[in-house]
Design a protein around this nucleic acid. Structure first.
Lengths: 358, 358
DNA sequence: ACCAAATCTGACAACGCTGTCAAATAAATA
DNA sequence: TATTTATTTGACAGCGTTGTCAGATTTGGT
């Protein structure tokens, strides 16, 4: 009875549609203390089933949603994960973000997207300031930020758990998720080999990116295992950009009578550059030269012929990164364990139309 | 004395480098009340300059950052803006996000990225739940969410101020930012006309997107003003996808002896499809047919020839949307005013290589 | 030098929730 | 049935900040 009366009062109180009910409202309606409501909302044990139902009903009736901010302030968790990035590729960032958000939603967490300028001299302070302002429950660091000492120090100083995505510097310093770049490049090279190619050129990626070296290594290993030595003048240094792909192509295609039969670009963007230049100078791809890339960016199905490339499991990597953070946050494991966690995810060789048998 | 003792305790407490100082620490160090510190941190008036300096120094010394969560709970603002999106284009979303974040940072706000499934039947409830859980200070709605009644109702019911980006449904229902799609298409058509083209085809965009209609209208108007009537069989219905561009091209290029001299695709993606098909069947672009697109997606400089297109000021639109929200949040204007605000931003015709004089 | 008005400052109570701990109740044991 | 033990519940004190309002101080006018 009291229940009904209070409920009526409350409804009147709320007036229009601006229904923001608090834990107090639920407690009153259910006839229990707010602490009990809190227990039910957090699925804590030691609540009689009968009470639990009563509270849940009341909560549903009032469309009650615990206020995240209040929970954060009172409790130890903020239900917020930070995604720090500074990457020019929008599809990469969006994929990361999707993966992180997907995992976070499963646990009622939200994601704060925080682009950072990796060239800023006060990057460390900026991050420290961010972490002091909002007590994030975890941070996900992505390339190139995840390889910067300044960044790692700031996060560690703040005592916030973090996971790195595809790091190459400071191995073992933190939990991390990655894919095997080297193996992927190895497999791609084998693919080219299996197509009958022997005269394979390689356009190396940006020297400051760890993956560039790993990819090149994988290429070299596959060649070497096939008993082949790459021709030095068919190895070009690129910088991951379209323009550097064009430049490499200019050099590579200088003598039309002495062309490699296949070209492996360390990333898609450079492959696009190569293909664009080839088209300009009338070199048919893949008829004269097969071209393959790495990353499977959206452009690879826009360009013609569609690009054969390696699909990085970016969404899955991000999901796994968030998972490491959250499974720890919800369980009662110790933080130190986190440090050593490392997850390796499988890549995929996507065969399209830019490479064909010799 | 007590002050010093407590302060010492605090320092010990903090131990290593985990220095998270509170407003209390600053107040103690500066020898004022926490309320005064609060005033200084919020740049409120009625604080003696001398006191202000004293507090600022103490705050700097302790690397004090106000706790956002506590501020939210105590005050009326959460310093959080929500960006709701459901758009397949990663570059569009990233641009939006960049713009919103840029503006938010100027005011110490943070951004919660919340992708939503526009096809979900319980979308309204999902949004209501989100807004009940986190009291956002404002929400930015982007296509296609910004045109869905269910979404608008949920946000309005929660009483959260919102701005729509490029909406087409329910005009005047909220503050909004947009660019003139119709004028842009008009100008692009004029551009083609000025290049000497008369036989211009048009591939229409997805019929459920408002911009598709506006773009088509702009095209028609320019043609009409030039005294031209578009040939009906050169007008094709597309759906904004690469595949639908290919399909349109198949129909358009059926009779090689009877080709339009220029093709205007309602978005880049379809233009890519057209160009890919043209390359397959050996039609030279732009020599035989000029092709132009709309949106300036990253692919437009990857494809060869680079695409002539319209650059949407997505970053600026997003910035402006956040600005409407924040300038209101910080000022003391009434909410109702917000409803009528509307900002129109300029587009840019980007001339590249896919269109040439006849 | 005095009083009113303007300016500055601080106590204290929220904000909505969780953690702690003790009290109340139910179940199990003797 | 009395007593111990396990289970369930609630009172109360924060979490770190802002809003309110009253008290203290300075300023301006005579």
């Amino acid at each position: 009875m009291t229940q009904i009366k209070v409920s009526a009062d409350r409804v009147k109180e709320l007036g229009g549609g601006n229904a923001v009910s608090t834990i107090n409202d639920v407690a009153r309606l259910a006839g229990v203390s707010i602490k009990t409501v809190s227990r039910v909302m957090n699925n804590e044990p030691n609540v009689r089933e009968e009470t639990r139902t009563k509270v849940k009903d009341a909560a549903n009736l009032l469309h009650y949603r615990p206020n995240l901010l209040a929970r954060s302030l009172a409790g130890a968790r903020s239900f917020l994960i930070g995604l720090l990035y500074d990457n020019p590729s929008s599809s990469y960032v969006i994929d990361l973000q999707s993966g992180v958000i997907a995992r976070c939603r499963e646990s009622g967490y939200h994601v704060l997207s925080e682009p950072q300028d990796s060239l800023a001299p006060d990057l460390g302070r900026a991050i420290a300031s961010l972490l002091a302002t909002i007590r994030l429950d975890g941070v996900i660091l992505t390339p190139p930020l995840c390889d910067m000492a300044m960044v790692l120090e700031a996060v560690e100083a703040a005592g916030v758990p973090y996971v790195r995505v595809s790091p190459y510097a400071y191995p073992g310093r933190s939990a991390q998720v990655e894919m095997d770049d080297s193996l992927a490049a190895y497999k791609m090279t084998q693919h080219l080999l299996s197509l009958g190619h022997r005269d394979i050129g390689f356009v190396r990626g940006h020297p400051e990116h760890g993956s560039s070296h790993r990819r090149y290594d994988g290429f070299l290993q596959a060649m070497s295992e096939a008993g082949l030595t790459p021709r030095p003048d068919w190895i070009k240094q690129g910088f991951n950009s379209f323009a550097s792909g064009v430049d490499a192509a200019k050099a590579l295609f200088e003598t039309p009578t002495d062309l490699p039969t296949a070209l492996f670009a360390s990333n898609d963007e450079m492959a696009f550059g190569i293909m664009a230049y080839a088209q300009q100078v009338g070199i048919k791809i893949p008829d004269q030269v097969s071209v393959v890339g790495f990353d499977d960016t959206p452009g690879s199905t826009v360009i013609w012929p569609h690009l054969t490339t390696i699909r990085q499991p970016v969404v899955d990597l991000a999901y796994a990164a968030a998972d490491i953070l959250l499974s720890r946050a919800n369980g009662d494991d110790d933080a130190p364990v986190l440090t050593r966690v490392s997850r390796l995810l499988p890549f995929e060789l996507v065969q399209r139309d830019s490479a064909k048998p010799i």
